[in-house]
Design a protein around this nucleic acid. Sequence first.
DNA 1: ACAAAAGTGTTCAGTGTACACCCATGC
DNA 2: GCATGGGTGTACACTGAACACTTTTGT
Lengths: 233, 233
Amino acid sequence: MVYAANVSERRRQPPELAISTVIFALRGDGEESRPTLWMPLVRRTRQPYQDLWALPGGPLSAAESLQDAAARNLQETTGLQPDYLEQLYAFGGLDRSPAQRVVSIVYWALVKPDEAALARETDNVRWFRADGVGQLAFDHNQIVDYALWRLRNKVAYSSIAYAFLGEKFTLAQVREVYEAVLGKTLDPANFRRQLRAAPDIQATDEYLQGGRHRPPRLFRYTGSAGPKNGPLA
Amino acid sequence: MVYAANVSERRRQPPELAISTVIFALRGDGEESRPTLWMPLVRRTRQPYQDLWALPGGPLSAAESLQDAAARNLQETTGLQPDYLEQLYAFGGLDRSPAQRVVSIVYWALVKPDEAALARETDNVRWFRADGVGQLAFDHNQIVDYALWRLRNKVAYSSIAYAFLGEKFTLAQVREVYEAVLGKTLDPANFRRQLRAAPDIQATDEYLQGGRHRPPRLFRYTGSAGPKNGPLA
DNA sequence: ACAAAAGTGTTCAGTGTACACCCATGC
DNA sequence: GCATGGGTGTACACTGAACACTTTTGT
């Protein structure tokens, strides 16, 4: 039995290769409050770490690329199709798993609100606020921290914020994304000017109706969605 | 025999896990010219890609972390001990290797000039200019391109430049590092001011003698050397 | 009319860049 | 003395932050 393997036995086996994904979505938690970052986790149904929450993941199938494996696994466990998917890091510490050694190649994903609304929530799949996940299985707390760090960094210098939004959005909604991710408020006037200066934000001639005040104009993002990692795809 | 395996056979085997490293050092190539980026490569002595140059690498031993594996492999193949070592990316495309599927976790390293001078150059280990490596084995050209991209990015916003330099250095030497990596000249006056404003650059009371002109002051870097990736070690 | 968000204008401090200039050394 | 790189001073354009102000809607 693998789980009972002693150390010398374990040293002889090749490390197992697994794929996991940290998934982020923005959700308005209350009625009147600002949206915040959420992520889906799956409950462990086996040892080790049985009944603790963990990142969705699984083994790498032989006939699919790493990214495809992440997307498929994500789809199978949570029903989600990400709008942004990028490799985060390969975790390969010796004692990540108590039995067989596991090397995990971790991806991180962003999903749009309509997609996140479709996500099925079962007894073994539940959404958590990103800043309140509690104790997770394996080294997954460390992985979530790193993913959050990367998200906060990347939102500041790239255009991933739009992966959190639908096709059309108000500039205030974009600002809410930044405020939720960065955890601080931003000056609406200056933020607006910055976005207007960006070439890949196009104004539509539509306005968001139904609000309590002056209807804001809707905009569209015309840049590409996927990650741009220099010479990589 | 692994290399003769057909596709359906190959699909059944678990992917192999390997570690490779892209190593950068700065070398003055001529007498009077500016230093440029170089990297050591190893010659393939077996199929596939026999006789082509490739990144140093090898399989992951069961009892060492990913980073330790990279450092050890690097030491064994090139004799180098890096001053900076950081994970680059996990490459896992289906057709990276013609026979068994291989997932490579790639690191990148920077070595100081005294260390690079010690490096043994044999018939199967040779140094190349980073911008003229020719055709490499596997997808290693793509990997080198990505490592170069990361290096150029990171040099602009972090302090890795000092991993290319010895304990004491002139500000002009630091500038030469930036110019070699970024591939453009920088204003000496403004560059100097920027560095003087950095808190972890300390002036010594020594001067570099033997130059053709006014002897420049030597400085010391007091910051830490390793990669700082947010919540990761 | 009033409140509140949408949207515009203006000021100000900090920063990067260009470049003129002085300093110290070898030849 | 002269050439050259070391090192300092300074002006200017650009940018981000602060904030006053106008516009447009719902109530």
